[in-house]
């Protein structure tokens, strides 16, 4: 009998201590927000373009993390981003619905700008500078090419231009050999089939 009491009480005491430690740990090491959302958000290109149907990259990341949205809706991210998110979520890759367009850049034709500030308010990354009744202009280095400023402009003075190619950013293409080409084709087929 005493053995039984000793066993129960010692195990009970241990369970109590462990429970207290766990309770403290839960408070002390609490993770703010959903780590999955952060991880997905880090993979997204942050253009904030809304082409996925959500009002920005973070909301899309939240939707994907909660299982509400598929992994293949990020257009500018392209195949690479889709594969990374699928890998992170542990789901099957899905083929993309839209091809990623070449990187663009907004450009304001300043002599036509009336200084209405509507594009400034629309820009998700604060890449347009200007003041009421003053010309606005796009900071080229900060523009993500999301096109969100084009629609609100009442005088249609914003053009989307191709991002200029810099010689410093030029990268060597794959060698022009049969084996390199075959590999590339096989990869794109694989991604397409998935």
């Amino acid at each position: 009998m005493t053995q039984f009491v000793a066993a129960v009480s010692s195990l009970g005491a241990f369970a109590l201590v462990a429970g207290i430690i766990l309770a403290i740990a839960q408070k002390a090491f609490r993770v703010e927000g959903d780590p999955m959302v952060e991880k997905i958000d880090a993979l997204l290109p942050q253009t904030q373009c809304g082409q996925c149907g959500y009002p920005g990259c973070k909301p899309y990341a939240e939707a994907v993390a909660s299982g509400e949205a598929d992994v293949n809706h990020c257009v500018p991210g392209g195949e690479r981003t889709m594969l990374q998110i699928a890998d992170l979520m542990g789901v099957e890759p899905k083929s993309l619905e839209e091809e990623a367009a070449a990187p663009m850049l907004a450009f304001i034709r300043e002599d036509e700008c009336i200084g209405c500030t509507l594009c400034i308010k629309a820009c998700p990354v604060d890449a347009i500078v200007g003041a009421p009744k003053q010309y606005h202009t796009v900071i080229a280095d900060h523009c993500t090419g999301c096109t969100l400023c084009v629609e609100p402009c009442p005088v249609d003075c914003i053009d989307m231009l191709l991002k200029p190619e810099l010689i410093e950013h030029w990268a060597w293409p794959l060698p022009d050999t049969t084996r390199a080409r075959l590999g590339q084709e096989r990869r794109s087929q694989h991604a397409g089939a998935a």
Binding site: Q46, Q48, C57
Partner: peptide, 8 residues
Amino acid sequence: AEESRLRS
């Protein structure tokens, strides 16, 4: 992307 995320 990181820079754009901070701006946003």
